[in-house]
Deep mutational scan, measured.
Amino acid sequence: EPLWIRPDAPSRCTWQLGRPASESPHHHTAPAKSPKILPDILKKIGDTPMVRINKIGKKFGLKCELLAKCEFFNAGGSVKDRISLRMIEDAERDGTLKPGDTIIEPTSGNTGIGLALAAAVRGYRCIIVMPEKMSSEKVDVLRALGAEIVRTPTNARFDSPESHVGVAWRLKNEIPNSHILDQYRNASNPLAHYDTTADEILQQCDGKLDMLVASVGTGGTITGIARKLKEKCPGCRIIGVDPEGSILAEPEELNQTEQTTYEVEGIGYDFIPTVLDRTVVDKWFKSNDEEAFTFARMLIAQEGLLCGGSAGSTVAVAVKAAQELQEGQRCVVILPDSVRNYMTKFLSDRWMLQKGFLKEEDLTEKKPWWWHLRVQELGLSAPLTVLPTITCGHTIEILREKGFDQAPVVDEAGVILGMVTLGNMLSSLLAGKVQPSDQVGKVIYKQFKQIRLTDTLGRLSHILEMDHFALVVHEQIQYHSTGKSSQRQMVFGVVTAIDLLNFVAAQERDQK
């Protein structure tokens, strides 16, 4: 057995438009009618409502009807409940999964919650491996369901041993009777949507819809739904939504950006999952974080739909894509998950301010006199920076000697690579993860907040409520011999709460 199987392995699926269902090699399930009293909570997966979006479509000038398939009504709160249950049931049916076995899954959280929910009911041990950027709410729900959680670096490539995929496979090879159901490759993922989600949409719309818009992560949702719609409703256009920084969209030119990270969760990847059939997507749109969270908040405030950030991405694209539809036509959007997962993220004004998705003037509360002053007023001194090749031991000596707790790590040209902190280095040394002679590049981390000289002290204040420091950066445009230009970030300084307090105190003292 291989040590790991690539999540982007070539698909062996034989589905073709027009091929009889009787030739399918898979076990198919028909939607079942729910009894009045459910035998367990797993029976509350599927049969989610279709809700008309009344205000947002009109606000953006849509002539067509805009409908939302509300997947956050599933038992675990997301569309991923469907595939989690289906993968477990299919693994039980073919004898792969037996009582007492362990389920391991690399996930952005929602599939993990679905699997942990099913594992709690069915009696399996469950280990979820997820990147650090995923919300604390997801972690809390997983723990409450009895799952064990392993976190991995957000910026690790999918084929790196440190990625959530790599760590999951390492655990599988170490733990007896453990299984990775593997949402990236498992046919049960798109089949769950082909058999149930798509049929529900067709039934709820009486077979009449002209466009379907869905955000894409593993691709199982859009693949399964689109294949069924292509068979039953061939005139329906399928629109895929991919965040900026991901590479799922086609044509490839759409993916060209210097951005590699994004805040919206559960969609987009740096590889093409095996289950994603991009041939059934008629057109791709890219979405960005700001519009995703703005539209998610709009869905909550104006439509009462308590959905997550990827739902915002989907609707932001839908109001663009559906401009081509006329009166009497219908566009369906998939709202994948609930706001429950993001209470401390985009639902929080403070978080939105820190990330730059909300401006101070958007909030009406009274601010102190210094709130709208610029960061450049602080008069920061030149920063202490270190090269990635310097040793951890030497870096600790320098920081202690100069009285700093942290320093930016830059390359020879001064471009920011990340940050090192005294606390992080000492804990890594004590844990045996690094040696004093190791290069400081081994303990770089990139989960820090950046701020510009033109940003306000109010925004800085919000950042420092949650973080010990902020890195002050400025952009530099560099022209190359080819005539092309590129933008790079340079370090201007490091600012802490002490710097802000000293500035405010000094100004008030001078005024007296």
Rank of each mutant, 00 (worst) to 15 (best):
P251K: 06
L430C: 12
G268L: 00
D349T: 07
L460M: 11
G432Q: 03
Y479Q: 14
K367W: 15
R374E: 12
I334F: 09
Q489I: 10
W284T: 01
E265M: 03
A249W: 04
D282P: 07
A497V: 13
L422C: 15
L501P: 01
V472Y: 03
V410R: 15
K366E: 13
L384C: 09
K345S: 04
V275G: 02
K366M: 15
S461M: 14
L325Q: 05
Q259Y: 11
T364P: 10
L422H: 09
S485W: 14
I444R: 15
L422N: 09
E244H: 09
F503T: 14
L325S: 01
D277K: 06
E365S: 13
Q447T: 15
D405C: 04
Y342K: 01
R297V: 01
R297F: 00
P251V: 08
Y262F: 13
K283C: 14
V339Q: 06
V280N: 03
A382I: 11
A322Y: 00
F404L: 15
I239E: 05
K512C: 13
T261I: 06
I451C: 01
Q511V: 10
I238K: 03
L387G: 12
I396C: 11
D455P: 09
P408M: 00
A292H: 05
T391G: 02
T314H: 11
A318T: 13
L453P: 12
N502C: 08
Y479V: 13
K359P: 04
L464D: 07
F469L: 12
Q507R: 15
R509I: 07
H480K: 09
S461L: 15
L248Q: 04
V280D: 06
P251M: 06
Q478E: 08
K512S: 14
V339H: 06
T391N: 15
Q329S: 02
Q256G: 15
K345Q: 06
M352V: 04
H372F: 14
Y269S: 01
D337A: 04
V504M: 13
E508M: 12
P273W: 06
G414W: 08
L335T: 00
A407Q: 11
L430V: 12
P336C: 08
Y262D: 00
T456Y: 11
S313M: 04
Q476Y: 10
D277M: 00
D362S: 04
W370C: 05
E265R: 03
C307D: 03
V275Y: 02
V241H: 00
Q259E: 14
A506Y: 04
Q476C: 08
G403T: 09
A292Q: 01
D277P: 01
V333A: 13
Y445H: 12
E263P: 03
I239Q: 03
L363Q: 07
D455A: 14
S427K: 03
S246K: 03
A506P: 10
N502M: 10
F503Y: 07
P243H: 07
V434D: 11
E365N: 01
A382H: 13
Y262G: 05
S428D: 11
M419G: 09
K320C: 08
S428I: 13
Q476S: 07
S348M: 14
P436H: 15
Q447E: 15
N341W: 00
I238V: 13
Q376T: 12
L501R: 05
D282T: 08
K442E: 15
E401N: 12
L471R: 02
H394N: 14
L305Q: 01
S461C: 13
V386R: 06
N288V: 08
I300W: 00
K367G: 14
H372G: 14
S481A: 14
H394C: 04
S486H: 09
C392Y: 14
E291D: 13
M298N: 09
P408D: 02
I267S: 04
G403M: 08
P336Y: 05
Q489V: 14
V473F: 15
E258C: 15
L325M: 08
D270Y: 01
F469R: 06
V275L: 11
T421N: 02
L248M: 06
R350Q: 14
K366S: 12
W371R: 12
G328I: 07
S428Q: 12
L276P: 01
V494K: 04
L380I: 10
E265V: 00
T364V: 03
M298Q: 10
P388I: 02
T314S: 14
D405E: 10
T454P: 13
R330I: 08
A413H: 02
Q326V: 12
K449R: 14
E252P: 10
F448L: 14
Q326T: 10
Q302D: 15
L325I: 05
W351F: 00
L426T: 10
D455S: 12
I239N: 00
D242A: 02
A470C: 04
L254E: 04
S287Q: 08
L363Y: 03
A413W: 08
K345V: 03
P368E: 10
K446I: 07
L373E: 14
L305A: 00
A311N: 05
L384E: 10
V491R: 02
D499S: 03
R459K: 14
S381R: 13
L276C: 06
F271W: 02
G393N: 07
D405W: 12
S427Q: 03
R509H: 13
G308R: 00
K359L: 10
Q406V: 01
L384I: 04
R400M: 08
R509M: 14
E412F: 10
D270R: 04
L358D: 10
G423Y: 02
E360K: 15
T261R: 10
R340T: 02
K355V: 05
I498L: 13
T456W: 13
A470T: 15
F293K: 00
E327W: 02
T454N: 14
G356M: 08
V375H: 05
E412S: 12
S486M: 14
Q511F: 11
L464G: 06
A413N: 13
A413P: 11
T364Y: 15
L429Q: 08
F271H: 04
T364W: 13
V491N: 12
C392N: 07
E327V: 06
R330N: 07
V386I: 15
E361Y: 11
V420I: 15
F295C: 15
L464T: 08
I416G: 11
Q354T: 10
G423P: 06
T389N: 15
N424I: 10
V315M: 10
I477W: 06
G308Y: 00
F448Y: 15
V434P: 13
V504N: 15
V332H: 00
V440M: 14
T257N: 14
I416W: 05
M343L: 07
L306V: 04
L276T: 03
V339G: 09
Q354K: 11
S485M: 12
V275W: 00
S486Y: 13
K433R: 12
M352I: 11
L363G: 12
T279H: 13
W370S: 05
A497P: 02
L248R: 04
H372N: 13
L276K: 04
E253S: 10
F469V: 09
I416V: 15
K449L: 13
Q489G: 05
K366P: 10
P383N: 08
T454F: 10
T421Q: 12
E475L: 14
M298S: 01
G328Q: 08
R278Y: 06
G356V: 02
V415M: 06
G441T: 02
L306K: 04
F295D: 02
N502I: 10
R350K: 14
S461T: 11
L306H: 04
T391R: 02
L254I: 03
F503D: 03
P436S: 11
E252I: 06
F503K: 02
K286Q: 07
